[in-house]
């Protein structure tokens, strides 16, 4: 039971990267970011195919959620870059 505004709705799998970073922590070398999907914001991994040296900025780029689930008791969300053009800042 929840008194917050909660509803189920079908949302586009596409979202915009609000901010991202690259974790160099041992055992967790990943690019991750906060993604806005129609107002829902999630922290997720951005697929490794992105070369951050060639693409100096990803903020505002468009991504698509390609996987989500639960692994070792934690939820995970994975995104793939689909458009490097800046959509929103």
């Amino acid at each position: 039971m929840c008194l917050s505004q909660t509803k189920l709705s079908k949302v586009d799998k596409r979202g915009i990267i609000l901010e991202y970073a690259e974790s160099l922590a041992e055992g967790e070398s990943k690019i991750f970011g906060i993604i806005d999907m129609s107002g829902i914001r999630l922290f997720g991994e951005i697929e490794r195919s992105v070369n951050t040296k060639e693409t100096p900025t990803l903020e505002g780029a468009e991504v698509r959620m390609v996987a989500c689930g639960i692994s070792v008791g934690r939820p995970y969300y994975r995104f793939k870059l689909i458009d490097r053009k800046i959509k929103r800042r």
Binding site: A21, I34, L42, F43, G44, E45, S71, R74, P75, Y76
Partner: peptide, 23 residues
């Protein structure tokens, strides 16, 4: 921060701190 499912697998404070720093 294991209770926050919106953080996905990025449950350590350093993950959000890096977002603040970059912004």
């Amino acid at each position: 921060l294991t209770w926050d499912i919106t953080r996905g697998s990025f449950a350590f404070p350093i993950h959000w701190a890096s977002m603040f720093a970059k912004a």
